[in-house]
Every structure is written in structure tokens, then in C-alpha cells.
């Protein structure tokens, strides 16, 4: 049984200009211990489909799916209180802007212990102990002292480590990382990715990595889903995708990598003539 299974997911937003379909018929599944990458450019519905899984979409969104299960349990029609028992504990998520994702008014120690308090029976002392362990495991130096820091006293990379520690606090089965390295310096990006993969291998959790960075995909993922304009274009294991991309859009994405630059101009997806290329494969 797959950890997370989604069939034919559709997300629509009510806007003043009518209904906007952000995700259109996306299907995917993740096994425990697997790293799935979802790639696509901005606005391709990568984040929205995962926010739908977490139940974090605003009230203007309508989520429909033929099937959306976590460990075999339906999570599409969960009551809000039942969902809160899963979210943050069995499925957790980290975001693109680590500094903005932490509450500026509370210490990071408070913010991680709060998750433990919500989902576990640990007492105050045990929570502190566990928080120190978690900070240690994500490579934050001097964890005891760090617990008393406010987010603005830490760097972006450190804040993302804190976010990872919070996400891992209750031993989730599935971690969704939404562009976790986009807002970080290149050197820090590598460290954070390595940390995520290392923790994923140690805990055996499933990892969904949302990214637009093909280099990140190549380094980390087992399997890849390519999304474009809310639709799923192609699903393949990572080697197949890079060696023989089936879909025209995937080819366009790959050819838009900076190393394919000619002259002093970087290639873009728009350079590739999507309309006149026969599409094969895809959903």
C-alpha cells in the first residue's frame, strides 16, 4: 500500500474574474522511503496540490479528487479536527521562505515545543530534551542556547534547519518540502538538501520535493513528476527522465538548463515550440 495516493486531483479557486483551475487532474503516489520530485515552472500547481493534501488552502479553493488517501485512509473528506491530528504529526511540510515561515514573536524553542505539545504526551522537561535532540540532529550548533533565539537572530539556512526540526518533531511518515532551498545561498542549498536526504534515509519516511530546479531533481529524486499549467505532463524515474524525456515540455525544461546556454543568453522554456511538437506520454 502506498503512503500517499492521489487520483485525479483538481483544485479550483473562486476569483473575482471567475473560476481558476490551478490543478487539473493530477495523480501521484509516494511509497515509504521514496523521494518523489515534482517539477515545473511557477504557477504550474506544484505547491497548490501539496497544500491541498495538507488542507492549507484558503477557503476560496475547492478541492476535488477521485481518491486521496494517506496510509489507506481517506484524507479528502476529513473533518478539520481529524485532519489536525494527522497534519504536523504524520505528514509535515516545510516551505520556501524559512525566515518568514517562523513566527517572529516567539523563540524557535517555543515553536518546536508547541508541535510536540500538540501531538505528544511528553511533559515540559521531556519536550525540551526532545527539542535539543532535534536541533542537534538537523545540525544546529549549541542547541540548548539556540532554543532561546528568535528567528530574526538566525540566518536563512539556520531557520530552514529549525523548520526541518519542527517538521520532523513527531516522526512524520511523509515530509513535503516546498522549494526548501530556493530562498537560500547556493552553498547552503547543498547543505540543506544533503540534510533532508540524510534524514530521509535514516527515518525511512517518504519525501516529496517540490522544485523547479532540474539539478536538484537529478541529485535527489527517485521518481519525478513534471507539471505544467496545473496538468501532469510526465511521470518517470529520474534516470529515464533525464535520458529520454518523452514529453515535449519535459524536453523544453531540460533544454532550459543553464548549461545549454548559447552565446550570452540563457535558454527559456518559451524558446521551445511546445505547440508544434507532438506530445507523447504524460497524463
Amino acid at each position: 500500500m502506498a503512503l500517499l495516493e492521489i487520483e485525479n486531483l483538481t483544485v479550483e479557486f473562486d476569483t473575482s474574474g471567475g473560476t481558476l483551475r490551478a490543478v487539473d487532474g493530477v495523480s501521484l503516489s509516494v511509497e515509504a522511503g521514496e523521494v518523489l520530485a515534482i517539477v515545473g515552472e511557477s504557477g504550474s500547481g506544484k505547491s497548490v496540490s501539496m497544500l491541498a493534501v495538507m488542507g492549507l488552502l484558503p477557503w476560496t479553493a475547492t478541492v476535488k479528487a477521485d481518491r486521496m488517501t494517506f496510509q489507506g485512509r481517506d484524507i479528502l473528506n476529513l473533518s478539520p479536527s481529524d485532519r489536525r491530528r494527522i497534519v504536523g504529526k504524520d505528514i509535515s511540510m516545510i516551505f520556501q521562505e524559512p525566515v518568514a515561515s517562523l513566527n517572529p514573536c516567539f523563540t524557535v524553542g517555543f515553536q518546536i515545543e508547541e508541535t510536540l505539545k500538540t501531538h505528544t504526551d511528553l511533559d515540559r522537561k521531556a519536550r525540551r530534551q526532545r527539542a535539543v535532540e532535534l536541533f542537534h540532529s538537523v545540525g544546529l550548533p549549541d542547541p540548548e542556547r539556540r532554543l532561546g533565539s528568535f528567528p530574526h537572530q538566525m540566518s536563512g539556512g539556520q531557520c530552514q534547519r529549525v523548520m526541518i526540526a519542527i517538521a520532523l518533531a513527531c516522526g512524520p511518515k511523509l515530509l513535503i518540502a516546498d522549494e526548501p532551498t530556493t530562498a537560500l545561498d547556493v552553498t547552503i542549498q547543498k547543505q540543506i538538501l544533503d540534510l533532508l536526504l540524510d534524514l530521509q534515509a535514516k527515518t525511512g519516511m517518504g519525501l516529496i520535493l517540490i522544485t523547479h530546479d532540474m539539478a536538484v531533481v537529478a541529485e535527489t529524486a527517485d521518481r519525478v513528476i513534471v507539471q505544467y499549467m496545473g496538468r501532469q505532463m510526465e511521470e518517470a524515474d529520474v534516470l529515464t527522465l533525464f535520458e529520454s524525456p518523452k514529453h515535449a515540455y519535459t524536453k523544453a525544461l531540460l533544454s532550459a538548463l543553464p548549461e545549454n546556454a548559447t552565446g550570452d543568453r540563457l535558454p527559456t522554456v518559451a524558446d521551445f515550440d511546445l505547440e508544434n511538437t507532438p506530445s507523447t506520454g504524460g497524463a
Binding site: P80, S81, R85, G88
Partner: peptide
């Protein structure tokens, strides 16, 4: 609309 409010909700905290 801030990110940290989304984070708080993603932690499964009650509204």
C-alpha cells in the same frame, strides 16, 4: 496571510 500563520496551521494547531 503571512507564512508563519500557514506554518502554525501546518503544525496541526487548533484554529
Amino acid at each position: 496571510g503571512e507564512d508563519y500563520v500557514r506554518t502554525a496551521r501546518s503544525k496541526g494547531l487548533p484554529p
